[in-house]
Amino acid sequence: MAEPLLVGAVAYTPNVVPIWEGIREYFAGTEAEMDFVLFSNYGRQVDALIDGTIDVAWNTNLAWVRTVLQTEGACRALAMRDTDLTFATVFVARAGSSLRDIGDLAGRRLALGSRDSAQAAILPVHFLHQAGLGEDDVELLRIDSDLGKHGDTGRSELDAIRAVLDEQADAAAIGVTTWEAIGRDELMPDALTEFWRSPMYCHCNFTALDALPAERSDPWVDHLLRMSWDDPEQRRILEMEGLRRWMRPNLDGYASLFEAVKQQEIPARW
């Protein structure tokens, strides 16, 4: 029997341990057994993928872009969550604010999350550019509270929201998952309002190098895609990881981030 496929993930919360133990358990006894390795940040994880320490990396969108850039495209995305296909950034302001559109941010102060967060920093700046707003037009309040984890902890986004509520910023750019986690504008009545939402883009994916033979990755992906919401044990894992179904990737959803990384001259390695 082949060696188990070694999958890397970043330990951004203690919950990552039961999630990956559950996923490993799901693969146990199949023809695609796996084990996992946890990293403290995405930089180390991508290095480990490229030097062959791990076979597959559970990457954020920025980690995917950086893997593509570092390997000059010699890598592939294997699968992603249904929720990764429909990710978006939400711009929020205090309830009753006069902000109606992203363009209204001219001359205002925007709180951003950690600078390595695609949803709360890199893409928001890109969307500002697309709306004709440069660095001189909008004052950026950068809150780098979870650097290295690409915004996964959500902490910098919560800090950005606090900055808005404390009137240190006029608006904050946050991931749609954080917006959902705080109950949109429904749990905090009269506190926050969404005034602009980005087009959808893709978030995480399982990344492998082209050097990983398809005979090894295909059975693993096939079994992953069979994980079912209707099975209570499998559903527990899906709920913890924030999805209902694993999906085949849609690479078009990364185009905006590739552009943003290029424009903002974000290094391919760090």
Binding site: T13, N15, G183, L187
Partner: peptide, 13 residues
């Protein structure tokens, strides 16, 4: 709500 997201989000299941 912000406390709930931060504190519960930092827990294991």
């Amino acid at each position: 709500v912000l406390d709930l997201v931060a504190r519960v989000g930092a827990l294991a299941d």
